[in-house]
């Protein structure tokens, strides 16, 4: 059992949902990212998505585009990101997913990448522009090393595609809650619900929801119907706004704690009641 699976299992037994945080590695530099990650973990991040900056991020809205530009200006590259993960891994069991476009991986070399990512302690990969139809060329190297290729499902995905997607999926299913790019539209639970049910009927993998979720209230409403909620642009934007403040880490911890609280059902009161595995139905 890898760290992703284990984390979802633990959360389920506690009646909680996963808080999945995204941040762009190297925004504004890798030292900051490396110092920040333990703070986010301590504050309640259950899974971390580490974004690899790319010059042409066609699936991202302005917030993450700008973060990628800042990161690239600071000279961030994939090798340095993997080194950072390897250092963090010595002190942490936080499940880590690399969120990337395909070209930086392809340029690195698929086999070399898979080998070094696994060695660094990466648990999963989300290659946003690598649909199942093209994924075999990477999966042949990641699968034997236990790296999960996380699958994306969109509101536009029909049942036939969905069947193919879940067949090759591992780790969790990432449901894109809006038709569009990251962080630009506000998703509605009522609109996502039929899709979440559609996915559940086809797979036992945990389902996480992301793209545009930004407030604790939204987190709470989606957490009631999914196994995890992904906060990306909202965190990246928060960090961009508050990045220069002296008590950044303390304030970031507060920001994350507030969101994490929204993944825990209110009836549990945050106490260790422990059961209630029915939450989410």
């Amino acid at each position: 059992m890898n760290r992703i699976e284990k984390r979802f299992r633990t959360l389920r037994s506690r009646g909680e949902k996963a808080l999945i945080l995204y941040l762009t590695a190297g925004d504004p530099n890798l030292q900051r990212t490396e110092a920040l990650i333990p703070v986010l973990e301590e504050a309640g991040a259950d899974i971390l998505e580490i974004g690899v900056p790319f010059s042409d991020p066609t699936a991202d809205g302005p917030v993450i585009q700008e973060a990628a530009q800042r990161s690239l200006r600071a000279g961030t590259n994939l090798a340095a990101i993997l080194d950072m993960i390897a250092r963090l891994r010595r002190a942490s069991d936080l499940p880590i997913v690399l969120f990337t476009y395909y070209n930086p991986v392809f340029a690195y070399g698929n086999e070399r990448f898979a080998r070094q990512a696994a060695a660094a302690g990466v648990d999963g990969l989300l290659v946003v522009d690598l649909p199942p139809e093209e994924a075999a060329e990477l999966r042949q190297f990641t699968h034997p090393r236990g790296l999960d290729l996380i699958a994306l499902v969109a509101p536009t995905t029909d049942d036939r595609r969905l069947a193919g997607i879940v067949r090759g999926a591992a780790g969790f299913i990432y449901y894109i809650s809006v038709t569009g790019v990251t962080g630009t539209k506000t998703p509605k639970v009522a609109e996502a619900l039929p899709d979440l049910q559609r996915i559940r009927r086809r797979t036992d993998l945990p389902v996480a929801v992301g793209f545009g979720i930004s407030t604790p209230a939204q987190v709470r409403s989606f957490a009631a119907h999914a196994d995890g909620v992904i906060i990306g642009s909202a965190l990246v934007k928060w960090l961009a706004v508050h990045g220069e403040e002296r008590d950044l880490f303390a304030r970031a911890a507060l920001f994350v704690r507030e969101i994490k609280a929204a993944t825990i059902p209110r009836s549990e009161g945050g106490d260790e009641k422990g059961q209630a595995p029915t939450a989410g139905e």
């Binding site: 649909p131 969109a154 595609r161």
Partner: peptide
């Protein structure tokens, strides 16, 4: 060649 795009676009391309 091929089709390297995010899932949101795949159904439209098909």
């Amino acid at each position: 060649g091929g089709r390297y795009v995010a899932e949101t676009l795949m159904p439209a391309l098909i």
